[in-house]
């Protein structure tokens, strides 16, 4: 009887070699699958980069980079074709500028309020609502800009064009608000309490503490939030495609309509461009430009974010 118990115990406590081997194999297999999933995202990014580069290469063999960057007209589909990215770039930058000039102050004020002033219960109520803004499909934002914000602004500014950069800029500002707010709030909350207590000890009130101590201490994190928000605004497609107009127009005036880079890509993709035609290649050259700009801003944003983490 006791022999039997001993045997059973042994079987339990010392698994057979076969079992150990199988377990190791299973672990290795799972690891391989997980690694595959993880590398998939990297591979996809590399694949996109490869397609962008190879198709743009075909474009830049016919159009010099100098012409691409300096020509002030963008009319690739018309008879008198020009391939200057500047009109598209100016619209993209103008929209981004408008978006940031709204999202920067609003996001900062919101973040200061949520991090330094709001009670826990208010913060817990407001944050889900902010995050809800992030969940709205961008096409809805686009029509919101076109059918609601533009007519509203036209009441104030009768000369505002039907398609303009102001309305999509403001709407994109609203769109990136949750993002910039939550990242900068995180940065502010990461500021150690000793700093705040020190400030109070010196006789600062809450406002002074927030503005003179917490914000400067979290500045690199806040900057990162806005740089990341900016790269999101630059790449935003549906809103500018719907409400910004589709006419390449070299202007920094937000009351005029102009095609931004993503809007152009949407517009030409709607017709049926033959593979290998010049119009087809412009999509990739424009896409590459957009990719490089957002990549640059993302890298800067990440660097800033890391820097602020190292401080404490």
């Amino acid at each position: 009887m006791s022999d039997l118990i001993k045997k059973v115990d042994q079987a339990w406590l010392q698994p057979s070699e076969r079992f150990i081997k199988r377990r190791a194999m299973r672990a290795a297999f799972m690891k391989a699958i997980l690694f595959g999933c993880a590398s998939l995202s990297v591979l996809v990014t590399l694949g996109i980069l490869y397609v962008l580069l190879s198709e743009s290469w075909a474009f830049f063999r016919e159009i010099s980079i100098l012409e691409f960057l300096t020509d002030t007209q963008w009319t690739p589909l018309f008879e008198d074709a020009h391939f200057g990215i500047l009109p598209l770039l100016s619209a993209t930058l103008t929209v981004t500028g408008v978006a940031l000039s709204f999202a920067l102050p609003a996001g900062l004020i919101l973040a200061i309020y949520l991090s330094e002033f709001a009670s826990n219960s208010i913060r817990e109520t407001v944050k889900p609502f902010l995050e809800l803004l992030e969940g709205v499909p961008t096409v809805v934002y686009g029509y919101f800009a076109l059918l609601f914000v533009t007519p509203l602004l036209q009441q104030l500014m009768p000369n505002l064009a039907g398609f303009n950069l102001l309305a999509p800029g403001l709407v994109i500002g609203i769109m990136i608000l949750p993002y910039t707010t939550s990242v900068s709030e995180d940065a502010m909350r990461a500021v150690p309490n000793q700093l705040r207590e020190g400030a109070y000890a010196l006789g600062f009130n809450r406002m002074q503490t927030a503005v003179r101590v917490v914000v400067p201490a979290a500045l690199s994190g806040i900057t990162a939030a806005f740089v990341l928000g900016m790269s999101r605004a630059i790449g935003e497609t549906m809103v500018v495609a719907i409400a910004g107009g589709q006419n390449p127009n070299l202007t920094f005036n937000p009351t005029e309509g102009a095609a931004a880079i993503p809007a152009y890509i949407v517009q030409v993709s709607m017709g049926d461009l033959p593979h290998d035609s010049m119009g087809y290649k412009t999509i990739f050259a424009a896409g590459l430009t957009l990719f490089l700009i957002t990549l640059a801003f993302n890298i800067i944003g990440q660097l800033l974010k890391r820097r602020f983490r190292e401080v404490y």
């Binding site: 007209q73 076109l146 007519p151 039907g162 589709q246």
Partner: peptide
């Protein structure tokens, strides 16, 4: 000329003219 809003989407043109 190439500097006008040329779109295959006629509804977009309707929108554009109706608002300006």
């Amino acid at each position: 000329r190439g500097d006008f809003t040329a779109s295959e989407d006629d509804n977009l043109l309707v929108q554009g003219i109706a608002k300006d």
